[in-house]
Design a protein around this nucleic acid. Structure first.
Lengths: 210, 210
DNA sequence: CCATGTACTAACCAAATGGTTAAACTAAAC
DNA sequence: GTTTAGTTTAACCATTTGGTTAGTACATGG
C-alpha cells in the first residue's frame, strides 16, 4: 500500500473530493445556493460533473456540507470564548479579535450564511435541532455578578451576545452596500474594519456602564 | 377618454401590475431572486405568466423593481433622520424607533436586501451610482462638536451610523439563526426586539461617553 | 359599427439544469 | 495475468425555467 503518492487519473487520496468541496465552497459563497450551478463547481474543481454526484448525492447534500463547513469554522471558536472562564471584559476583547480576524480572511461568509439561513430556514432547524445553542450560562452569571455590584447595567446574555455579534458581523454581511454608500471600496473597507478593531470592545463595555 | 374606471377582464386601473409587483415582492423576499420562480409569482398574483413579461420585460427587471421598492421604503426615512436638524441624541432615538417599527412590519426585508447585495453587487453599484450616499455632513458636525466639548469620544460618522444600524438590522437578518440558537420562536422574537427597543439608543450613546 | 390600442391568456419553445448510466481507467489483491 | 473494487468520464435524459407568439376580449373613439 502506497501511503499517499502520485496517481495518474485518480490524482491522490481524497484529493478530488476535497477539491470539489473547496470549489463548492467558493461557488456557493459567491452565488448563493440557488444561484450556484453544479457545472460551475465541477469546472472550478477541474472535474466531471458526475463526480459531484458520486461523492455528494445531490446539490442539496453538497449545499449542506458546505454550509456546515462554513459555520463550523467560526461558531465553535466564538462559543468556546463565550463559555470559557475568561473575565467578561476579556471575553469581549477575544470575540472581537476572533471574529474580525476570521471574517477579514473570509469576507463572503457572513453574507452567505445569512442568506442561506433566510432562504433555507429548514436546514438551520435541522442542523441545530440538537445541541447547537451557545453556552450562555457562564456569561449570564458574569453579567448578573457585574449588575449586582453595580459595575454594569443588568442585561440578558442573549441581548449582550447579539449586540456584540451584530457589530462584528453586519459590516461584512452588508459590505457591498457599505462599499457604495460609504465609498469604502477595496482598501477602504479594510481600513474601516481595522478602525473598528481598535474601539469596538470598549464601545460595547462602555454601553453597559450604569 | 375615461379617467380610470372599471374594466371587465382588465380588472381595473393598474391593478394587475400592482398585484404582480406585490406578488413578486412576496416571492422574492421569501425565496431570494435566484430561488424565485416566475410561475410562482404569476400564481400568487392570480395572473398569467406572460403578463409578468408584459409589464416587466424580464425577471431581472422585475427583480430590480422589487429591490428598489424594498430599499425605497426604509432608506429615505433613515437618511432623512440622519440628515435632519435633530440633536444627536434625538437622532439616535428616532432611528431606533423608525427601523424597529419598520422591520417588525417587514421582517424578511433585511435578509433579502443583504442577500441581494451579496449575490448581485452589480445591481447595487448601478442603482446607487449617483447620489445614494447618506447625508453624513450634519451628523459629523454634531459628533465633532460633542467631541470638542468632551461630551463624547471622537468618532467618524460612518462608524457611528454603521454601529447603530448593525444593532438594529442584524437581529432581523439573522432571525432564523437566532430563533433556533436562542430559542426565540414566534413571539419570543418579538419580545426580544421589544426589549431592544427599550435600551438600544441609550446603549449606543453610552458607548460614546469619554 | 368598425377600427384601434390595451390588457390578458393558452400554448409553445429553446436553453439550461440537476441528475443518471454505462463504460473506461487505475491500482491493488490474488 | 486476471479479477476486483474504487474513481472518473462522456454521453444522455427528463424536467424546469425564462421567455415568446399568436390570438382573444373589450372598451373607446371615430
Amino acid at each position: 500500500m502506497v501511503d499517499k503518492q502520485e496517481i495518474v487519473e485518480g490524482e491522490a487520496d481524497g484529493a478530488a473530493e476535497e477539491r470539489i468541496l473547496a470549489a463548492a465552497h467558493a461557488v456557493f459563497l459567491k452565488r448563493g445556493t440557488y444561484g450556484a450551478r453544479m457545472q460551475e463547481i465541477a469546472d472550478e474543481a477541474g472535474v466531471n460533473k458526475a463526480l459531484l454526484h458520486y461523492y455528494f448525492r445531490s446539490k442539496e447534500r453538497l449545499a449542506e456540507a458546505v454550509f456546515q463547513h462554513a459555520i463550523g469554522q467560526i461558531m465553535p471558536r466564538v462559543f468556546g470564548i463565550v463559555g470559557s472562564d475568561l473575565a467578561l471584559e476579556a471575553k469581549v476583547h477575544a470575540v472581537v479579535e476572533a471574529e474580525l480576524e476570521f471574517f477579514s480572511a473570509h469576507p463572503y461568509l457572513p453574507g452567505y450564511v445569512l442568506a442561506e439561513a433566510n432562504f433555507n430556514p429548514e436546514r438551520i432547524q435541522k442542523m441545530f435541532a440538537r445541541g447547537g445553542a451557545p453556552p450562555l450560562g457562564k456569561l449570564q452569571e458574569q453579567l448578573d455578578e457585574a449588575a449586582a455590584t453595580s459595575t454594569m447595567r443588568p442585561m440578558r446574555a442573549q441581548q449582550f451576545l447579539v449586540n456584540l455579534v451584530s457589530l462584528l458581523v453586519f459590516p461584512f454581511a452588508a459590505r457591498p452596500l457599505l462599499d457604495v454608500l460609504l465609498g469604502t471600496g477595496g482598501d477602504g473597507f479594510r481600513d474601516f474594519i481595522e478602525e473598528r478593531r481598535g474601539y469596538l470592545a470598549e464601545f460595547v463595555l462602555r454601553g453597559m456602564r450604569p
